[in-house]
Computed example of a mutant assay.
Amino acid sequence: MFRVAFIYIAEPYQCYHTASVASALARHPGYQVTEYVNFPETVAHLSRIRRDLNAPDLPVKFFKKSPLAKLLGRAKRFDRERIVILRENIAELDGYDAIVATEYTAGILKTMGLKKPRLICIMHGAGDRLVNDEVLIRNFDFTLLPGPKVEKYFQNLGYLNTQNSKIIGYPKFDVFEAVRQKKPFTFKNGKDFVLYNPHYQKKLKTYDTCLNKMIAGFDKQDTYNLLIAPHIKIFHKGFGFYKKALKKKNTHTVFIDTGSPAMLDMTYTASASMYIGDGSSQVYEFLANPRPCIFLNPKKLEWRGNPNFLHWTLGEVVETPDQIMPAVFRAFDRHEFYRPLQEKLFLETFGSPVLGASQRGADAICEYLGSENQKT
């Protein structure tokens, strides 16, 4: 019997990338899967995913937390909190045969004294953005990748090779396939909506300079609604005041989501007619069905030729808030130019077929652990 722990050390968005793999693995004979969570709300998301997949719930445990970890959590020092929690749970996690995570931070478990379990990463995101702790991928014993683009990137860095990694696709699409059977999101007025998906990273963020002017611009026209779904980490600071301030900006044509499951399960990326973004790789999820994209560059970053901004080649890039609305109204006319590249990069990012990554991931874990067991 292989005992495998799936760990969700960060916010609930992580479970949309790995929970379906956990369910598929639990169906394999000889595998016992337990899920560890940090945030209480993650449990509700896991249950929701299982309902949509028609899969049974799996055993869930909360990470043990010292007073220090709890204090860091209340102060929203989540990066520091994650490290403390992982260190405090080493002894329990060391009792498993494998630990599966989608957070690079979990790579530090090996430096903290983790000995017995094989450490497995199911990579989330779609690349095109420099991540400070991506070097930790070298600490994982086995890594499951979404597609050839990311594989090539990490192989060129020398972090991965064909023996310690495998392409499986993007498990989140399996979750979405189940979710989309439900009614898609629409505004009450029935008009198409544009999705603005701002990232939290300081060097990339655009919501501080573009959000209010974008809202004003959409208020002056009656063709599109505007839906704003920020990266959930934008709300780490402010102790809830920023959420309240954003909610006050909602109108019958503008809706700002500050924390619903639809921000995480691709409901908005599937239903929107157009995408406006900056550094988020969610644009690739949007391009499962190619549609017009606009990218914001108010900081006037030198992005051309930079692989971390490859997705900015998939739509018009505007540099001032005043240019946003004109770009919106010409986006469909210009989409014919961008669509072939959107289709090409989507395939390079996620491979083919799109669906079935969860089962492929579970099978790959079984094959890997089985071969490692034979070595010992």
Rank of each mutant, 00 (worst) to 15 (best):
I232M: 10
K233F: 05
K233H: 06
I234M: 10
F235Y: 12
F235N: 06
F235L: 11
F235W: 10
H236M: 06
K237M: 08
K237Y: 07
G238D: 06
G238N: 10
G238E: 10
G240W: 08
G240I: 13
G240Y: 07
G240Q: 10
Y242W: 11
Y242T: 14
Y242V: 15
K243H: 05
K243T: 08
K243D: 03
K243Q: 12
K244F: 07
K244E: 09
A245G: 06
A245S: 10
A245P: 01
L246F: 12
K249V: 12
K249Y: 07
K249I: 14
K249W: 07
N250H: 11
N250P: 06
N250M: 12
N250W: 09
T251L: 14
H252T: 15
H252M: 13
H252P: 07
H252Q: 15
H252K: 15
T253L: 13
T253C: 14
F255L: 15
I256Q: 02
I256W: 00
I256F: 02
D257W: 13
D257M: 15
D257F: 13
D257Q: 15
T258W: 08
T258P: 04
T258S: 09
T258K: 13
T258M: 11
T258A: 12
G259W: 01
G259C: 04
S260A: 05
S260L: 04
P261V: 08
P261T: 09
P261M: 08
P261Q: 06
A262V: 06
M263L: 14
M263F: 00
L264M: 10
L264V: 05
D265V: 09
D265T: 07
M266S: 01
M266I: 01
T267F: 00
T267Y: 01
Y268V: 00
Y268H: 03
T269V: 15
T269P: 00
A270V: 02
S271I: 02
A272W: 01
A272T: 03
A272G: 04
S273K: 15
S273V: 12
M274P: 02
M274T: 03
M274G: 01
Y275R: 03
Y275Q: 05
Y275S: 03
Y275K: 05
I276V: 15
I276K: 07
I276T: 14
G277E: 09
G277T: 14
G277N: 13
G279Q: 01
G279A: 15
S280D: 04
S280K: 10
S280L: 10
S281A: 15
S281M: 12
S281Q: 10
Q282I: 14
Q282N: 12
Q282G: 06
V283A: 14
Y284N: 02
E285H: 10
E285C: 08
F286W: 02
F286D: 00
F286N: 01
F286Y: 15
L287G: 03
L287Q: 08
L287T: 03
L287V: 10
A288N: 10
A288W: 06
A288T: 09
A288H: 11
N289R: 14
N289E: 11
P290A: 06
R291I: 09
R291D: 02
R291K: 15
P292Q: 08
P292H: 04
C293H: 02
C293L: 13
C293E: 03
C293P: 01
I294H: 07
F295S: 04
F295H: 08
L296K: 10
L296I: 12
N297V: 14
N297M: 11
N297I: 14
